[in-house]
Nucleic acid binder design. Structure first.
Length: 786
DNA sequence: CAGTGAGCGAGCTTCCGCTTGACTT
């Protein structure tokens, strides 16, 4: 008889635990929170600020199952996670299941091992109401911010927008990064490198060296090369320094997302989906965590595995401490459940992600890598004194340019590098591959082979990727492991930011080479600042950001979350009352909401006047319209209706010029007639199009809507007709509304404008179906719907 | 799929954190 009911948050966890606990225990899952504020209303009393909770529709089934089980059980154990949210889940369960304190036990465990769970069962406690209240404060604050701020945006910017403690700050990061990039002025400088040979030794013995200082101008660089013509190069000092590198800690949600993005090219949500699979199949521990902690079991397992695979000297058991801001550490780090499984069954994505997790975990338990770094200073013996003080002998940093430096790195013991190598976001400068220097000693004379001065450009900040944004958010303590991926999706769904590519700028640069006694100058071309798959702010994102920043600077502050977290902590410790905290926040916040809401709308957020129309004298302006950014000629109070044009792709409200704006009104234009009806070129929501006889054909990107000819337009119309033709497999005399079509997912039936899926068995016969057969599918589907 | 928008104004949109499904158009 199962006298005990244990409730955990995750069903996969429930399954594992049930095995450990044996017959007397039934383990069920709550599937996260079971109760929340109402979905469509603010659900907070405006006077008392008391929250009103309800069980959402999709949770009713789970709750009723839990209720039945709880009634039958002699004892209920609440084993949700040991953090703010977990404690609240247990409290809500108590309330909803009508559990009494006598029968209820709150237990927690940090790792899912038999001993940890049995130990937890031995030491039950009661629900910590302080922790629950900290969660209520968190929940109510987020609801107030989200549901009071969003409507302000609907009125002042555009309907259906949203604002929130986390998402608005995430957008701010992206907008500000973009502005930094725009403001960045690239400067050129000259880097000098040299190749020497060692005449004393036999065979090939090249030495590559760099000048430790850089020149700001071409003249300086040339002057330096000139002086090198008759110079001597002598080894001045050889120093050897041992370095050691330590492995990165095991994965958390955020670091897993970053590495999977860099190494496997996964998006943030893709990583989470694949990880979820691995978790459900028992391959890895829980994937939403901020902890770098590993269980004793895993550390012991890793040690054994590393002994076996690499040998004893590669093993170094370590324990990591979490430093992330606001970390709650309810779980372990993300790691393989069994280190002895070096690989698993699954699809290629699963296998690759697992491999990454295995290697990272193993490396974290391995020895440091030892590196010997050799630095050789090569003194330049100039034949004559410098021509002038400012040129030739000094670099822009004011340091003497009178020696080269050659460095060599040799890995003397690879340690953890044998398993895993962490990537970085810095794509520009690839670290030189480890190179070995020939043996040199003080006083050795080197022969100059070539010295080159290469023009380089300082690079500005780089745009965020999904993963690097997560990294930044974690650093600021904004968002939680369970919300990183959804937040990234939200800000893209709201069209505040888009993922896209940025074309680089082509730059010409010079390379001056001194070889023999001649200096040759060459120019080359290079593309600078090219980026792929980066987060770019949209006009709406920029306008919303600037608007919120102006009226709600406190909430947009990067420290806002960290600040409220401190207050939540005080509530959790019982040192502050949650209602008092919320009241004090609301007292300052609500009046600003009211005031902002009632500002007269003579100037919409983000509106900007570009100038006056050259012939009519009407004002030309840009603003956010009902469907996004638009250009407008004239104003609403004018007796003529204003004219509108959609902002074209690639142009933005901040930078569009009057001339560019006026171009847009040259569309729609009629290019001629075809089959008795006009052919019109226009541009709409989905880009430029050709319109003819109520039908639309999108204009390919290669065609310019302003110069497309009638002939080209007709060609496109005919192409489209041909394609349409191919899509229609069958039509029927019985009823012209019935058609068999060929689509992306195979043949389907279209009746009266609605699409119907046909059974797989009919696919082969598509093309020779009878009207009756088709009608059957339609009526069957229609009756099923009802 | 849809190529709009300036007002007679319906009714709707929205947060962050816990957790998994049921869907293929």
């Amino acid at each position: 008889m199962q006298d005990n009911l244990v409730i955990v948050e995750s069903p996969a966890k429930a399954k594992t635990i049930e095995k450990f606990l044996g017959k007397d225990y039934k383990v069920m899952s709550s599937y996260g929170h079971i109760r929340d504020l109402k979905k469509k209303e603010i659900s907070i009393d405006p006077d008392t600020l008391e929250p009103f909770y309800e069980i959402p529709e999709e949770k009713k089934k789970v709750v009723s199952e839990l209720r039945t089980a709880a009634k039958k059980a002699g004892k209920v154990w609440l084993a949700s996670d040991e953090d703010r949210e977990g404690e609240a889940i247990s409290w809500h369960l108590c309330e909803v299941l009508g559990l009494d304190e006598e029968k209820t036990n709150r237990i927690v465990f940090h790792e899912i091992t038999k001993s940890a769970i049995l130990e937890a069962i031995e030491t039950p406690r009661h629900i910590d109401m302080n922790l629950v209240n900290a969660q209520q404060a968190r929940r109510v604050l987020d609801r107030l911010v989200g549901f009071r701020l969003s409507p302000v945006l609907w009125r002042k910017v555009k309907p259906a927008l949203s604002a929130g403690r986390v998402q608005s700050v995430a957008v701010r990061l992206i907008v500000e990064r973009e502005r930094e990039i725009q403001a960045f002025q690239s400067e050129s400088f000259y880097r000098v490198s040299a190749v020497f040979t060692l005449p004393q030794t036999q065979g090939a013995s090249e030495v590559k060296a760099e000048l430790p200082v850089r020149f700001r101008s071409h003249e300086e660089a040339i002057a330096f090369l000139e002086r090198c013509k008759d110079a001597t190069f002598t080894v001045e000092a050889v120093t050897k320094k041992p370095l050691h590198r330590t492995p990165a800690p095991p994965f958390t949600t955020s670091t897993l997302q970053q590495e999977a993005s860099r190494k496997l090219g996964f998006t943030v949500s893709q990583t989470m989906m694949v990880a979820q699979h691995l978790y459900e199949n028992g391959h890895i521990t829980y994937m939403r965590t901020d902890s770098v902690n590993l269980s004793k079991l895993c550390i012991a397992d890793s040690k054994e595995e590393i002994f076996k695979l690499y040998g004893e000297k590669y093993s170094k058991p370590r324990n990591y401490k979490t430093h992330a801001k606001g970390a709650q550490e309810a779980h372990e780090a993300i790691r393989p459940t069994y280190m002895s499984n070096t690989e698993i069954e699954g699809n290629s994505q699963e296998r690759r992600l697992y491999d990454l997790i295995w290697k990272r975990t193993a490396a974290s338990q391995m020895a440091d890598a030892l590196i010997e770094k050799t630095t050789v200073n090569i003194r330049i013996g100039f034949a004559e004194a410098p021509i002038s003080d400012t040129l030739a002998n000094k670099s822009n940093q004011g340091e003497a340019a009178d020696y080269f430096v050659a460095t060599g790195e040799v890995i003397t013991f690879d340690g953890f590098l044998k398993a895993y190598h962490e990537s970085t976001d810095d794509e520009n400068e690839m670290e030189d591959v480890t190179h070995i220097l020939p043996v040199m000693k003080e006083g050795d004379r080197l022969e100059r082979s070539a010295i080159t001065a290469t023009e380089r450009f300082t690079t500005g900040p780089i745009r965020y990727t999904e993963a690097s944004l997560v990294h930044k958010m974690e650093e600021l303590g904004i968002g939680r492991p369970s919300t990183y991926a959804p937040t990234i999706s939200t800000i893209q769904q709201r069209e505040y930011v888009q993922k896209g590519d940025k074309k680089g700028v082509e730059r010409t640069f010079t390379i001056d080479t001194l070889k023999g006694n001649k200096i040759t100058t060459a120019t080359k071309k290079d593309v600078v600042g090219k980026e792929k798959g980066k987060l770019l702010p949209s006009d709406v994102g920029i306008v919303v950001n600037d608007f919120l920043l102006e009226y709600f600077p406190d909430i947009m502050d990067y420290g806002f979350t960290a600040n409220v977290e401190k207050q939540f902590d005080r509530i959790a410790e019982g040192k502050a009352k949650w209602t008092a905290m919320i009241k004090s926040f609301y007292k300052d916040f609500e009046p600003v909401v009211e005031r902002t809401m009632n500002i007269r709308a003579e100037h919409k957020a983000g509106e900007r006047e570009l100038g006056l129309h050259p012939t009519t004298g009407k004002p030309v302006s840009v603003k956010i319209g009902r469907y996004g950014p638009i250009v407008q000629i004239g104003s609403a109070d004018d007796k003529d209706k204003p004219q509108f044009a959609q902002m074209p792709a690639g142009k933005s409200m901040e930078t569009i010029t009057l001339e560019e704006a006026l171009e847009l009104f040259k569309l729609p234009r009629t290019v001629g007639e075809f089959e008795g009806s006009p052919v019109v070129i226009g541009t709409g929501r989905f880009g430029p199009y050709v319109q003819h006889n109520k039908k639309y054909v999108s204009l390919p990107k290669t065609d310019d809507p302003l110069s497309v000819t009638l002939d080209r337009a007709i060609e496109l119309i005919k192409e489209k007709r041909e394609q349409e033709e191919k899509r229609h497999l069958q039509q029927f005399d019985e009823d012209p509304k019935m058609e068999v079509m060929s689509g992306r997912y195979g043949p389907y039936i279209c009746y009266d404008g609605k699409n119907y899926r046909m059974p797989k068995a009919m696919h082969a016969k598509a093309g020779q179906l009878t009207f009756e057969e088709c009608m059957q599918v339609v009526t069957a589907a229609d009756s099923k719907k009802k």
